[in-house]
């Protein structure tokens, strides 16, 4: 197990190298002048273009420039993000926790509803419960996420006023920047509890709800499908018949026996979806004005903030490898037949 994890972690630098080199190569398609002009804020300084090119060595060959970027990246310096107005590393540190928080709440909702709907769908196959569950999941899947997000926003914020939009309330924004609020983890949900401030916790949770619900409805259809078909397969297996023949109550047959076996493929799917959420909550973060890493990535891309783009993709690559590793490890916890050696 340890050996397996170690070997998988050895892959990490390779993936990171590949991804970042590819991106770096693409940015080199821009001429040195174009890249240099990104550093210049005032049109009157255009004359100093040559100085900038000289200073940052923008005319050096690809490998030399990449080597330079890599060298400073390894030492923790990912450059300065023009779009976020702060060093890239600091931007990631600031925006990532909000997205991770959103992704965790979303994936918990997705797995919970996906498994629940999937099980009901399978157990009540071809009855109205099955049709309803499939209708809801496919309906959510078919709605574009920006339409869904706006609809939910209209309903829950505009009409009902139950849930607010945005990252957090102004009062929370002020409170978390006061010196007596300690940022232990960067995750506001956890930090607010550690600070003993339940008001902030509830505020953050309320702001999380709508974006999380939007993401959940948009992506739990696949989960329902996988769980349903996996459950149908398991329910037909011999051990389920044995469990019934032993006189176990029906809920134990369904959840303890068939359900636990059926959930194995769902774990892979949840792993993949979780990683995708980390890098792909851009639209939702924009609609709900949520201060996450997705919004940082998009802004960086729109403004040709090369350091920002490189930092963002580096982060996504690392998260991908770690996420996959994590779902592999999770497998062994559920399925005793899987052993992670060699």
């Amino acid at each position: 197990m340890i050996k397996y994890i170690f070997r998988r972690l050895l892959l990490l630098p390779l993936v990171v190298l590949g991804v970042t080199f590819l991106l770096f190569f693409l940015t080199q398609r821009l001429s040195p002048e174009m890249r240099a002009s990104l550093y210049i804020k005032d049109p009157r300084q255009m004359g100093s273009l040559e100085e900038v090119i000289e200073k940052y060595g923008l005319r050096d060959n690809l490998f030399k420039q990449y080597g330079r970027w890599l060298g400073s990246a390894v030492s923790g310096d990912l450059g300065y993000s023009q779009s976020a107005n702060m060093p890239v590393a600091q931007a990631i540190k600031e925006y990532l926790p909000a997205t991770v928080q959103l992704a965790i709440v979303t994936i918990v909702l997705v797995v919970f509803f996906g498994v629940w709907f999937g099980v009901v769908s399978a157990v009540k196959k071809d009855k109205w419960q099955d049709h309803l569950a499939r209708f809801i999941s496919v309906g959510g899947f078919s709605l574009p996420i920006f339409v869904l997000g706006l609809l939910l926003l209209m309903l829950f914020y505009g009409k009902l006023g139950w849930f607010p939009p945005g990252g957090y309330s102004l009062s929370t924004d002020v409170a978390i920047h006061l010196p007596n609020f300690h940022h232990y983890t960067g995750f506001l949900l956890i930090d607010s509890l550690l600070n003993g401030n339940i008001r902030i916790f509830i505020d953050v949770l309320r702001h999380l709800f709508l974006p999380a619900l939007t993401l959940c409805i948009g992506s739990f259809a696949l989960m329902v499908r996988v769980m349903r078909s996996s459950m149908l397969e398991e329910l037909n297996k011999d051990y389920v018949r044995t469990a019934r023949a032993k006189g176990l109550p029906e809920h134990a047959v369904i959840y303890r026996h068939a359900g636990k076996n059926a959930i194995i493929p769902v774990i892979t799917l949840a792993g993949i979806q979780f990683i995708r959420l980390l890098g792909g909550t851009v639209i939702v973060e924009t609609i709900f004005d949520y201060p996450g890493i997705g919004r940082f990535g998009v802004t960086a891309a729109q403004q040709l903030d090369i350091a920002g783009i490189m930092g963002f993709s580096l982060m996504v690559a690392v998260l991908f490898v770690l996420g996959n590793l994590f779902s592999d490890i999770l497998y062994t916890a559920v399925d005793p037949r899987i052993k992670l050696n060699d």
Binding site: K246, G247, N261, R337
Partner: peptide, 28 residues
């Protein structure tokens, strides 16, 4: 009725199946 049937199964009338490879829950 369902509950009386459940109490009967495995308790008063028990069964051994054909294929022991698939008749046991693999992850329990």
């Amino acid at each position: 009725p369902a509950e009386e049937l459940r109490q009967l199964r495995g308790h008063k009338i028990a069964m051994v199946f054909q294929d022991p490879m698939t008749s046991l829950n693999p992850i329990r």
